[in-house]
Design a binder for these strands. Structure first.
Ligand SMILES: [Zn+2]
Ligand SMILES: [Zn+2]
Ligand SMILES: [Zn+2]
Ligand SMILES: [Zn+2]
Lengths: 159, 159
DNA sequence: TTTCCAGTTGTTATGTTATTACACGTTACA
DNA sequence: TGTAACGTGTAATAACATAACAACTGGAAA
């Protein structure tokens, strides 16, 4: 794991950086980062945590978009498919990718207390996994690694 | 990963073996493997695949138990809590543990074609993960690793 | 034995998450 | 300028999960 998750950071900066990157990516790859999609990404970035689809939907609607589930699910699916967001299975939630500029193997560290989700890169973990799956003859297409526990902050509070 | 998943095997034997083990475990640890709970385990073993709670519920009801969701969820939760079954997040489904006799770190290999789920043990993968989380100051409580792809059989069919 | 309690099972009702199906508009492109 | 692919919106519904409460069970305390 190369990054320390849960670290303090300049959030406004990280958010606008990701949005800039998304705009660039859209232009380069011809992705259609339409208003709803961009708004959904903004919402995830502003929330800075894992958000449920209906929560995103509510905020999309407040910004003048539709208010039916598919509106949110489609935008979120687009973001996930294009590496701008991830789905956190354990929480039935979505979170903006914090490092969309590099092809990474995300691992999610989920704090059960404060519910924050940190995205770490664990190339080594997933390389191990790939090697094992290869031996078993299984072709990996997607990997989902999620860890539930206590983040450093909440660990401190508990003790 | 120490086991080859998706291998042919004597399924009736593996199923009855797990049930025997569950009975033994119940006696040793004082677990109350009641009729509904044992039936739920049987259903998962007979299905030999990941099954949704409502699917299990339907079969429980056919055997004379209640027909409301909590009946299934409670039995399944019991099995999961006691290591007799696992939850597959990706599929919102449950599967009988194939190796309940050892304390293992399950990794699920999910075939997107035939929907079979193989349970492999990946101690090495999760040890790597633990070490990384430790460095980040995160206390791991539960880990969930799920891999989506093509099993050897379906890989063959596709080519 | 009787009382009590924790735990189990059942029911109703409700909450939460996700998809299908279809209409209409927009974009890209021949 | 057709037209096909894609995107957005809506309504309806499916699928998954939990809350709240009543009734029963089985064992320990009195
Ligand atoms: Zn990411
Ligand atoms: Zn925390
Ligand atoms: Zn297992
Ligand atoms: Zn398969």
């Amino acid at each position: 794991m190369s990054e320390l998750p849960f670290a303090d950071h300049d959030h406004d900066h990280c958010a606008s950086g990701v949005l800039d990157h998304a705009d660039k990516l859209a232009e380069e790859k011809g992705l259609r980062l339409t208003p709803v999609r961009r708004a959904a990404l903004e919402i995830l970035l502003t929330g800075h945590r894992a958000m449920g689809a209906y929560e995103v939907l509510e905020q999309l609607n407040a910004k003048g978009f539709g208010n039916q589930p598919p509106v949110a699910y489609r935008a979120l699916d687009f973001l996930v498919d294009n590496g701008l967001a991830h789905r956190v299975q354990r929480l039935n939630a979505f979170t903006a990718c914090t490092q969309p500029d590099r092809h990474h193997r995300p691992v999610f560290l989920i704090c059960r207390d404060c519910e924050q989700v940190a995205e770490a890169d664990a190339r080594d973990v997933q390389d191990t996994l790939s090697a094992s799956a290869d031996r078993a003859g299984f072709v990996i297409e997607r990997v989902n690694v999620e860890v539930l526990g206590l983040c450093p902050t909440c660990k401190g509070k508990a003790s």
